[in-house]
Simulated scan of single mutants.
Amino acid sequence: MRLAAALALALLLTACAVPEHQTPGTPRAQVVEALGAPTLAVPLAGGGERLIYSRQPAGQQVYQIDFDAHARLTRVEQVLTLAHFQALVPGVDTRESVRAQFGPPALVEHVARFDGDIWTYRIEDMGEPRQAHVHIDPAGVVRLVMFTDEQRGDPDSRAH
């Protein structure tokens, strides 16, 4: 009986440390105590603040955790989704707006056919591992967003 109670308590405490399980209205200090230091903090209009918790480069989640001007939790959202990247507007979004929304990328790449950085984020789309590639020109403006399938593990040995 004691073992079952201890196990239930351990599960409850573990659940509290997951971003999705944070309760609206929770004070900022309590959220940070449960989740640890954020990857990035971004001011929001109206005096609020967004904490970014990223699991990049290994994970496929970035959580936006928003607080109002009174440092109370208002929203938690996992934003590494196809829809969030499709909402970026080339020519309008910038390096700063991408960073404020998704945090730092998993990888920064360069290719011969584009003069600038390509920020790569690991995402999951309908259960499939994908990558979002955000092309940012030298002036810091998003020029293109494209998606590729992420190759994991060794190639199929039967192809040889």
Rank of each mutant, 00 (worst) to 15 (best):
A15H: 10
C16V: 15
C16Q: 14
A17M: 13
A17L: 11
A17S: 14
V18R: 13
V18G: 06
V18P: 00
V18S: 11
V18Y: 11
P19V: 02
E20C: 08
E20I: 10
H21L: 15
H21I: 14
Q22K: 12
Q22T: 01
Q22G: 09
Q22P: 08
Q22V: 04
Q22I: 01
T23Q: 15
T23A: 14
T23G: 04
P24Q: 04
P24K: 07
P24V: 13
P24C: 10
G25H: 12
G25S: 11
G25Q: 11
T26H: 11
T26D: 06
P27F: 10
P27D: 14
R28S: 09
A29R: 08
A29E: 15
A29M: 07
Q30I: 12
V31M: 03
V31P: 03
V32D: 11
E33L: 13
A34V: 08
A34P: 04
A34K: 15
A34W: 10
L35R: 02
L35E: 02
G36F: 03
G36Y: 07
G36K: 08
G36R: 09
A37H: 14
P38N: 08
P38M: 05
T39I: 08
T39S: 13
L40N: 02
L40W: 00
L40I: 00
L40S: 04
A41T: 09
A41L: 01
A41D: 07
A41W: 01
V42D: 02
V42S: 08
V42I: 02
P43R: 01
L44T: 05
L44N: 07
A45I: 01
A45R: 09
G46W: 00
G46R: 03
G46T: 07
G46P: 05
G47W: 08
G48P: 00
G48I: 05
E49D: 02
R50F: 07
R50V: 03
R50H: 04
I52M: 06
I52E: 06
Y53D: 01
Y53Q: 09
Y53E: 04
S54T: 12
S54V: 06
S54C: 02
R55M: 12
R55S: 11
R55H: 09
R55F: 13
Q56K: 09
P57H: 00
P57R: 09
P57E: 02
A58W: 10
G59E: 07
G59R: 04
Q60W: 12
Q60L: 12
Q60N: 13
Q61Y: 11
Q61S: 13
Q61N: 11
Q61F: 11
Q61I: 12
Q61H: 13
V62Y: 03
V62T: 13
V62M: 07
Y63G: 00
Y63V: 01
Q64K: 06
Q64L: 02
Q64R: 07
I65N: 00
I65E: 03
D66S: 04
F67N: 10
F67T: 09
F67Q: 09
F67W: 04
D68R: 04
D68G: 09
D68A: 05
A69C: 07
A69H: 12
H70I: 07
H70C: 07
H70Q: 15
H70R: 14
A71C: 04
A71I: 02
A71E: 10
A71G: 02
R72I: 06
R72K: 15
R72Y: 06
R72T: 08
R72N: 12
